[in-house]
Simulated scan of single mutants.
Amino acid sequence: MRWIRQPRRRPPRDEGRIALLVIVLTVAVLAMIGLSVDGGGKIRALQRADNLASEAARAAGQAISGPQAIQGGDKVVDPAAAGAAAQNYLAAAGVTGTVLVSPDRQHITVTVTIVYTTVFLGLVGIDTLTATRQATAAVVAT
């Protein structure tokens, strides 16, 4: 009896599989870096918008109506002066915002909007992120 020799099977070749794995992992790592960079930028923009809104509201709250306060009446905000003070503060900071004085002229609400230009998210079509914050100041008579 003659033995038929089976051809030796070669193990499957791994060529190219590692390269595909490296490409997938590289894209995943770059996506995580991009999200952390642009996410951190958005958080900084939100913090800046919050700080600017608070300070602009505080600046507007100092614009009280002089004649009424001097005569011993209620301390109320002069809407025109308060709006101008807040807008001047926001313009000096290089941002845009809105100022709203309450009907009783005791509260000033400032809304600030900052546009953050993305670094990595622009690669997927997200070029800007908007950060909007609002702060309110109240007139306190001492």
Rank of each mutant, 00 (worst) to 15 (best):
T117A: 12
A60T: 02
A91L: 03
T117F: 04
G61W: 06
V112D: 08
A82Q: 07
A57V: 03
A92G: 11
V101R: 10
A91D: 08
L90G: 02
S54L: 13
D78V: 04
T111Y: 09
V110C: 05
A63E: 11
T113Q: 13
V101S: 03
F120W: 13
D127R: 15
I126Q: 13
I114R: 04
T132M: 04
I64P: 00
V101D: 04
D78A: 10
V77M: 15
L123N: 09
L100R: 15
D74V: 10
G72F: 08
V101L: 06
L123Y: 14
V119F: 11
A60E: 05
T132R: 13
G72S: 04
I70R: 15
L123H: 10
G125F: 13
T98A: 08
V77T: 11
N88S: 13
A80G: 09
Q106H: 12
Q68L: 11
S54Q: 15
G97V: 10
L129D: 09
R105I: 02
L90Y: 08
S102V: 03
I114C: 00
V124K: 13
S65F: 11
E55I: 00
V112P: 05
A81I: 05
G72N: 10
T109H: 06
Q87C: 00
G97M: 06
T98W: 09
A63K: 14
D104R: 09
L100P: 00
A85K: 12
A57T: 02
L129N: 09
V110Y: 12
K75M: 05
S65D: 14
A81N: 09
T117Q: 15
G73P: 07
A93L: 01
A53P: 03
Q71M: 05
T130H: 10
A86T: 09
V115P: 01
A131R: 03
A57N: 09
P79A: 08
V99E: 04
V110A: 04
V112C: 03
E55S: 13
G125I: 12
Y89T: 01
S102Y: 11
I108R: 07
V77D: 02
V95Y: 10
L129A: 09
P79Q: 11
V112L: 08
L121R: 10
A57D: 09
R105P: 01
E55K: 07
D104I: 07
A60W: 10
D104Q: 07
T113P: 00
T109D: 00
R105E: 01
L121H: 05
V76N: 04
A86L: 01
D104A: 01
Q106K: 15
Q68G: 00
L129H: 07
A63I: 02
Y116I: 06
L129Q: 12
A93N: 12
T111K: 15
I64Q: 05
Y89C: 00
L121I: 08
T118E: 04
A80N: 14
L100V: 14
T98M: 04
A93T: 03
P103V: 09
I108Y: 06
A93H: 10
Y116T: 05
A80K: 12
S102H: 13
L123D: 00
V119R: 15
G83E: 14
R105M: 02
G122C: 01
A131I: 08
V112S: 10
G61K: 11
P67A: 14
T98E: 01
I70S: 14
A53V: 04
I70M: 13
Y116L: 01
S54N: 14
Q71G: 02
I114G: 02
G97F: 10
T113M: 05
A57K: 07
A93F: 06
I70D: 15
